[in-house]
Each structure stands twice: as structure tokens, then as C-alpha cells.
């Protein structure tokens, strides 16, 4: 578990990081290093150059901007998990961040790195999709905004164009009648989600589900939006019956996978069980 030789460069600004990525096609960004370095030690990733952006101050911090929480890409999971505004307005994000890996991982790993790496079992993609988060990405041509929902394309494959940098994640603060949560079945070895489900659901004063965004991670080749569950919820009365009815569609919108720990059949079953549980949490 010794990586190949690589060049190390330290960027002091986003612009400098982008410039290095443009001139060196073998370069990869290094933020917290908790996804990339293990791959390098296994020699599954062999970047020629690491561009260390961990010192770029403009990428840090959490702030409220209008009706959005804007989280700098270099914000660590630990910072996200304990931030009072995140805990108040985006509890599912705080819950997910608090359950990533272990303390050391949460103190080093970053939200931008996590989303860019797009591990299919990662917790944050589900939460980002459920909250309809937007990723601000910066490249040589300037700034662009991508919806989390459209960002994850496959295992470790994203819509992030080559040579660009995620600079921040903007999450709209849900309306006051929205409740949200994240539940997960962790793999006993890695702590990654075998199945994780995030839900953000709004219920009207008369108890009707107005709006629902449900996303599932871990089960499929990438996190997906469980649209059939959402459709089965919206317009219905928030009840145990509605939850049970809707949850059975939890595995219908993803390419559910199988591995030595959990078969496709069992993962499909877990999608339904955990969707039921997250919906009970937010609706009942």
C-alpha cells in the first residue's frame, strides 16, 4: 500500500488550482484525502500530480445567503455536522455528516471532496439530492451551477467537467412545513451505506403531503432520486398506510447492485425498509 511517485503542488487559490489542472492532465485535486489517498495506496488511482487545495481559504466556511445555506467545498464533515444553522435547517445533512466514517475521517474529509469522488455508497449524495442542492463549479471559463440530482452519473463518475473545481454547495432552506431526515444501514467494515435514504417532505395543514423528495444511496451504481416513492406520497394523507404503500417503490428508480455483503434482492428489500423508516420519521 505504497503509492506511485507523484508530484505535489500546493494551490493558494481556486484560480491557481484550475490553472494547474489545465496544464497537467494527470493532476488530481487533494482536499481531505480520505477518498483519493486510499485508492492511491492500492495503486487503483495513480495521478501524476496532486494539487493540494486544503489551504485555499475561499473554499471554507458555512454561511446563510438569503434562503440558502452555502457550504464551502473544503468544509469538513465534522464542521457540517455540528453547525447550528445546518442542524436547524438541514437536519438530514447534519445527521448524514455525523455518521460518515469515524472521527478522524469526519475531521479531515470534506463535503466537496466527498461529492466529487461520488462513491456509490457515500451518504452525502442522497442528502444533496433530497435537498435539491446546487453545486457551484469553477473552471477556466468561469462559474457554473449543477443540480445535485444531475451530478451523479455512475460509480465515481460525475458531471463535473475535467479540470474544474467544486467551490461550494448551496442548499435551499426548506419551507417551514418540511421535515427531513437521513437513515442508513452502515456496512460493518467500511461504515459506508449499504443503503441510505434521505427524505425531505412537506405536509400541508390538513395533513396532505404537498411535496416530497426522496433519495437513495448505497444500493445502486450511484445515488438516485426515488421518484416513484415521491409520486406515491404527494397528494396523499400522511399516514402509516401511505408510508407503507410508497416505500415499496424505493428500489424502482436505481440500478440496484449486489456484492459479497448484500445481494441485489436484499438491498432492494433494505431500500423499502429504510425508506419506510425515514418516512415514518418525517411524516408520523
Amino acid at each position: 500500500m505504497i503509492p506511485q511517485a507523484f508530484a505535489y503542488r500546493r494551490a493558494s487559490s481556486v484560480a491557481e488550482a484550475i490553472a494547474i489542472l489545465q496544464e497537467d492532465s494527470g493532476a488530481k485535486l487533494l482536499a481531505g484525502g480520505h477518498s483519493l489517498l486510499p485508492l492511491m495506496k492500492m495503486r487503483l488511482a495513480n495521478p501524476a500530480t496532486l494539487v493540494d487545495i486544503s489551504g485555499v481559504k475561499e473554499l471554507r466556511g458555512i454561511q446563510r445567503v438569503g434562503d440558502e445555506m452555502v457550504i464551502g467545498a473544503l468544509t469538513t464533515h465534522a464542521e457540517v455536522a455540528k453547525h447550528p444553522l445546518i442542524r436547524t435547517h438541514l437536519p438530514a445533512l447534519a445527521e448524514a455528516a455525523a455518521r460518515i466514517g469515524d472521527l478522524q475521517v469526519r475531521n479531515r474529509g470534506t463535503i466537496g471532496g466527498n461529492l466529487a469522488h461520488a462513491d456509490p455508497s457515500s451518504d452525502l449524495p442522497a442528502v444533496a439530492i433530497a435537498y435539491d442542492a446546487r453545486l457551484t463549479v469553477m473552471g477556466p471559463a468561469g462559474r457554473d451551477v449543477l443540480a445535485a440530482e444531475d451530478f451523479f452519473l455512475g460509480p465515481m463518475v460525475t458531471a463535473l467537467p475535467d479540470g474544474q473545481v467544486i467551490s461550494s454547495v448551496a442548499v435551499p432552506i426548506p419551507a417551514s412545513n418540511t421535515r427531513s431526515a437521513y437513515v442508513k444501514c452502515p456496512h460493518p467494515a467500511s461504515g459506508y451505506a449499504v443503503v441510505g435514504v434521505a427524505a425531505a417532505v412537506a405536509v400541508s395543514a390538513d395533513g396532505t403531503v404537498e411535496h416530497a423528495r426522496i433519495s437513495v444511496t448505497g444500493a445502486a451504481d450511484c445515488a438516485y432520486r426515488a421518484r416513484q416513492v415521491e409520486e406515491a406520497l404527494v397528494g396523499k394523507t400522511a399516514s402509516l398506510e401511505t408510508v407503507h404503500e410508497a416505500a415499496q417503490y424505493a428500489a424502482e428508480d436505481g440500478w440496484i447492485g449486489s456484492d459479497v455483503y448484500a445481494s441485489e434482492e436484499y438491498r432492494r428489500h433494505l431500500c423499502c425498509v429504510y425508506t419506510k423508516r425515514v418516512l415514518q420519521k418525517v411524516l408520523l
Partner: peptide, 10 residues
């Protein structure tokens, strides 16, 4: 198949 601590659950 369970050849790392990511797969082999201690």
C-alpha cells in the same frame, strides 16, 4: 474477496 479492512469487518 474480503481482502481489505473496507470489506472485512473487524
Amino acid at each position: 474477496v474480503t481482502g481489505t479492512l473496507m470489506d472485512y469487518a473487524m
